[in-house]
Design a protein around this nucleic acid. Sequence first.
DNA 1: TCAGGAACTGCAACCGGTTGCATGAAACAT
DNA 2: ATGTTTCATGCAACCGGTTGCAGTTCCTGA
Lengths: 323, 323
Amino acid sequence: MAATIRDVARASGVHVSTVSRTFSAPHLVNSETRNRVLAVAEDLGYRPNRAARALTTGRTHNIGLIVADISNPFFPPLIKAAQAHARARDYHVFVADTDEDPLVEEELIHTLAKQVDGVLLCSPRLSNRVIERLHADVPFVVVNRRVKGMPTILMDIGQGARLAIEHLAGLGHRRIALLSGPTGSWTSGEMCAAAAAAEGVEVVIMGPNAPTERGGLAAAAEVIGSGVTGVLAYNDLVAIGLIEGLYERGVRVPGEISVVGVDDIVSGRLNRPKLTTVAMPTAAAGRMAVDLLLHSFGDGATPTLATLETSLVVRESTGEAQK
Amino acid sequence: MAATIRDVARASGVHVSTVSRTFSAPHLVNSETRNRVLAVAEDLGYRPNRAARALTTGRTHNIGLIVADISNPFFPPLIKAAQAHARARDYHVFVADTDEDPLVEEELIHTLAKQVDGVLLCSPRLSNRVIERLHADVPFVVVNRRVKGMPTILMDIGQGARLAIEHLAGLGHRRIALLSGPTGSWTSGEMCAAAAAAEGVEVVIMGPNAPTERGGLAAAAEVIGSGVTGVLAYNDLVAIGLIEGLYERGVRVPGEISVVGVDDIVSGRLNRPKLTTVAMPTAAAGRMAVDLLLHSFGDGATPTLATLETSLVVRESTGEAQK
DNA sequence: TCAGGAACTGCAACCGGTTGCATGAAACAT
DNA sequence: ATGTTTCATGCAACCGGTTGCAGTTCCTGA
């Protein structure tokens, strides 16, 4: 049906190897011949078969992108950026969702390993031990998790958490809560570390919480009971859920309790009150992760670490602490 | 490096074809032999190479999923469901984003065509003519667009729009606005058709609007100027943006103007006022689209049309019309 | 004038599976 | 005992490219 390299060879009177080189090593073929071959190929609508190419070269020109939950609004901008960036470099992206389940994540890596040249692991829930073991099968770039000797993109959430805590402290809050995220989340760990190191404020850690608005909703009662006046939530969804839960119980934000989220998702910007939040450079992280992965194919694996800055976006969900 | 079919054959003392059949046609091989081969394969960590298999069978076991904008919260639940459903059937999914650009969409289909067994086209911006032409290259299932002779999943937005309009009419609104979506959007066309057919209410159509909250924000002035008391927006993002724009101009929702969205995205549920909206069965659509596509591989292309019902979710952004 | 390259191109093996056909052995019918 | 199936497996060509090697032609410089 579709034209193959042999059809093109026949129609342009050269050997298949010449056609092959026309596409994969143009400088090795005479420009006159090359143009003729290209014209014929164009005419026949020939496109190289990537599966066949993959077979001999061992390079599929595909990459895998594994996230915990596509529906979590934190990920789509990252996926979108990574996918566009990869495509511009002639790579296609398999996107897979683990449903926050480490076992699914591991199985996914296995089945994907043979089909891709490398995998972008975003906010993995797997332990470092397992990740290191799987690394033998396929190159990784890890996003939002520190794994020894592996190319890594980090969004500096520790710094973001410090910014958020200082912001609250500056508004006079003396006792604040940290709503931590899922066990196994590096992000959550970093936030807890930042909280523990905070000076001049008492930070009580609550959790783990599901990284969804339900998780935030469910935490409302405990937050009220704890007597804090400020909250740093694991992410914006949790923050929004929490605000909802507080409203239901008649507690006003930011009047009585101030809330800071993390991620700067669209919903937060549209929420009322508009969410004060730690903005994460997700699109940049997606692009950089692709770059790092493709780069790691080239030379002999230079593990690199890139840390991207986060920033605090002050909107309406935080205010002066109540006397 | 990785074990191949020949390694397994050698180690288990049979010919490669027997190993091949063990995996792709188990009933053709003696159960004793089969078990031995399976044991050896397990031992060597053998996994069939899909690229090689694709080369001979012509089936890649991959499908493409093309959406206009991954960041649009309407799509992630669909992507998530489709991806999970496909994986359970041993298919992997390439996700690609066209940035709402028909040209990118066309190019994407071309480059993907050779790499996948079929493509899920979600809310395409391409004209039917072009889609029909491209259909020669690769099987499609089209979601949210009616294309003659092609397997199609429709979410009945016409019915949803009628429900929304009746809801507004029931609340006493006599003059309402329809904020239409991008040119080329089938959904938008259906909504306009439903609006034109509405009885007992006057519907003025405004647009096209960008399918984002910016689009809604930008439409606020015109909505106020038009003297309508109710609005049906192209989607929830537009609705939320519009509400924001109305607030900025001192117009209250639902006090002075009622607003209905479409999609039932999370942000709408979390918005204040909570959005009244037409809920779309996105996850079901994703699963069904995968089923239809895989089914179409089997027999001789039975174009099927599935229409999924939509429903109106009444929340807080709609109320009695002002006298 | 001739050795030594450089520039092109053809040849053929190979990547890792699949599959139609042939072979041989065992099971069955007559 | 002989002919016919059925079952299990081996053989080898093939899918559509890539690539090391070798051969040819032509150019260069001594």
